[in-house]
């Protein structure tokens, strides 16, 4: 579980986060949504330590991340899985070796066989085990994303952060990836936070949705609730597309 209390961040005169309070539950997929410039990227970066907040606290399972030393933060980071925008796989390594990489780095006590077994388990979980000996250049964008998910869960993380997991994917593949993230979150009881602006993702996997507007936590609730929200800014965001408008009118 991740608790955020009164999180504030400014860049010179510009206040980007104006006191965000929320909680991301274990075993649930939480989505951060909002318009461009709403502060969701800054919020996500503060969560993983990319940026230092000016005020407020972030608790990882009751441990205050903002008050931790560098060494303590490193320990927490080991429990974080990261799904980078654009997959960020190492081109010179095979699919299997990409998944083994974090195991090599973090688990010195695991034998080679154990690492291989773990990598195969993760690849099997994302249904891409048959491509284990291929290189990133030889697989599709959707498959790369699966490999990136497998790599993110290789070290059995407690927290999974996904930055625009659907960027560059076709709608069909995007749904598959979204579902995969949601399934893994529940199956391994992970606290998952997804930064997205894709309403399809919200509808597919949003157990908990946080809507940021001009640096404020404007609205939060479930994916069902967002469709019926009377909040004008939420409505503007959700029904910005013609498709959503048609769905609403039906």
């Amino acid at each position: 579980m991740i608790q955020i209390k009164d999180l504030r961040k400014s860049f010179e005169e510009l206040q980007v986060l104006k006191g965000v309070d929320t909680t991301f539950e274990k075993g649930k997929t939480s989505l951060i949504i909002g318009q461009s410039g709403s502060g969701k990227t800054v919020f996500m970066k503060c969560l993983v330590g990319l940026l230092e907040p000016d005020e407020g606290d972030i608790f990882y399972d009751d441990m205050n991340f903002t008050a931790m030393s560098v060494r303590q933060r490193t320990r927490v980071r080991k429990k974080m899985g990261m799904l980078f925008q654009g997959s960020a796989l190492f081109d010179s390594l095979t699919v299997e070796e990409n998944v083994i990489f974090p195991l090599e780095m973090f688990n010195k006590n695991m034998t080679k066989k154990e690492k291989l077994e773990r990598a195969h388990f993760c690849l099997d979980r994302v249904n891409i085990l048959n491509a284990n000996h291929l290189y990133p250049a030889e697989i599709s964008g959707g498959m790369k994303k699966r490999v990136a998910i497998a790599r993110a869960i290789a070290n059995s993380p407690d927290y999974l952060f996904c930055d625009e997991p659907n960027s560059g994917l076709d709608p069909q593949t995007a749904i598959v990836i979204d579902k995969l993230i949601s399934e893994i979150t529940k199956e391994f009881n992970i606290t998952t936070v997804v930064n997205t602006h894709d309403m399809n993702s919200v509808m597919e996997i949003g157990d908990h949705v946080v809507f940021l507007y001009k640096g404020d936590l404007w609205w939060e609730g479930s994916s069902e609730e967002i469709l019926t929200s009377q909040n004008k800014e939420v409505e503007d965001f959700v029904y910005a597309s013609e498709l959503m408008l048609k769905l609403k009118s039906q």
């Binding site: 980071r77 080991k78 960020a88 190492f90 990489f101 974090p102 090599e104 780095m105 973090f106 070290n155």
Partner: peptide, 16 residues
């Protein structure tokens, strides 16, 4: 720099 960041985020030690 980004590749270094990704490697380190995935656990690569300084000496690596």
């Amino acid at each position: 720099t980004t590749i270094i960041g990704i490697q380190k985020a995935l656990g690569a030690k300084n000496y690596f």
